[in-house]
Design a protein around this nucleic acid. Sequence first.
RNA 1: GGCCCCAUCGUCUAGUCAGGUCCAGGACACCGGGUUUUCAUCCCGGCAACAGGGGUUCAAAUCCCCUUGGGGUCACCA
Length: 552
Amino acid sequence: MSVPSYVSDPIARVPAPFASKCSAPMSAVRTRFAPSPTGYMHIGGMRTALFCWLLAEHAKRQSQEGNGDGGTFVLRVDDTDRARNVEAALAPILDAFRWLGLTWDEGPEVGGDHGPYFQSQRGEFYDRALQTLLDSGAAYRDFSSPEEVAADREAAQAAKTPYVTNRRSLELSAEEVEGLIAAGQKHVVRLKVPRDRTITVTDAIRGEVSWNAALLPDPALARADGSPLYNFASTVDDAAMKITHVVRAEEHLSNVPIQTLIFEALDEPVPTFAHIPFVTAPGTNRKLSKRDLSKYRDNKSFRKLFDSAADRLPKLGLELGEDLNPVMVRFYEEMGYLPEGLINALARLGWSLDDHTEVMSLDTVAENFTLDRVVKNPAGLDPDKLFSFQSEWMSRRSREDKVRRCTEVLNRAGYENIDEEFVGRLVDALGDRLKLYTDVLDVAYLFESGVTYDEKAFKKRIAKEGVPELLRDFKTERLEPLTEADWTPERLEEELTSFSAAREEGVGKLIHACRIATSGQPVGPGVYDVLALVGRGACLERIDAALARAAA
RNA sequence: GGCCCCAUCGUCUAGUCAGGUCCAGGACACCGGGUUUUCAUCCCGGCAACAGGGGUUCAAAUCCCCUUGGGGUCACCA
């Protein structure tokens, strides 16, 4: 088979324009995200998936305005070799897409014209492609044992020379090869890399990148049992699914020359590659990885996340650890983050709209997303910034939504008979303080019979010269005479203010004392709301308890 | 080690392709002040960066080269 003269004109084979700032209409854009079913959705993978989705979605919208031929986002499952529990391991991944509102046009559950969408079901595609390559001579059977290959590799390493495949099997005659096959001799199929080539590709993000093919080992396409390897399966699928833009993390950049060669050998157009920077671990520019999780606690803003999760998750019957942690999308969902918040943060990781726009909906991002505004260098997710986006989006949520979701959290935390009307009052009192749905857990004292005192705050605000007396008098003179009906924030404020004035004291003293006595904590909603929410009976009891504690 | 990629405030970034309007803009974080006689919000202000060295040019964060630093990848994994 003849190899196209790709070297002389590398760009000619790159189909669609990648910088859509240009006014030329875009041809159809088809992107894919190909997760392997691991049982969880990695936050970095999610960012990659988001960019894939955005590119397709943007093209889709453009075409609706009469510009271009549409966009399609494909979800394909890389489950080669892992057939056992695919469904269970895939579910969390699909859930993450659903939670964030990233729909797929083709893939699991929805099907499509280019299926099946599970690699484990695409065996015939690989077999056929493999035969094509074997027939054309682009690939060959390698009878070397894995041990021999490993030894060659080590020798090259030791000699400090680049390792290239020892093509001994190529010296076999056709008859000898037939004989070995007939004898059941184990072998892999390798791509015969043309060693006189320079492979050049114009990456949509990195620009022109080249490799000297003479330095490339012949990659295995299929195992001894005939099953396809990643680079091969992925290329065959991308070709069959008519993928126009391969958007993936930068760590895949080194797969480009091999895949390019495979596309060419298959006589398929080479898609546009777009290698986006990966998401880094906090405080470093290394790849964010589940394995180094414990190290991330050393990072200041990550530690806040961990600490807060360690406190809250158990209350919801969950556990911070291997199966649930900040590298997973589900972590943020369980902690009560909003999809809008995470999307906003992820979209801003490596991409910007302009020099000032920070808060953006998925819709806004999709409307404006182009690869030419993707940055080249890796970026770390900053929990503080995510939190800032989160509070912005939470502030836009309706009261009904907050009430419903907070009630859910409370129920999950095991508090029985939660009254939605009461939660409504609570949500009002919380106001902007409610940043995450799980923030309601901070006011658990409203749903429990006793109070746990913050020791430091207690000492500072109650166990102090004159304060217990003041609190006691306020209680007996002003609080006790109030009826249940009088027990409103407005009335309580009136009483506290006038009492303080009568005593010639600043209101601060009593405000703090009351807050600590009734809630145990130095922070929370406004005091009058706290007193009202805690209720007359419990307030009086708790003040007594605090007084007794101060006296002890 | 080979190959490849990357390099602007603590962090995410704008500016780089089409050099001057940038003694570098925004956001988050941080620090200070104001509002709230409480917590949070909100408002105002501040701190803070072009990795280094050579070129090219009247002019370089922007173009070229080198150095340094960081990272990715080198499987019959994905």
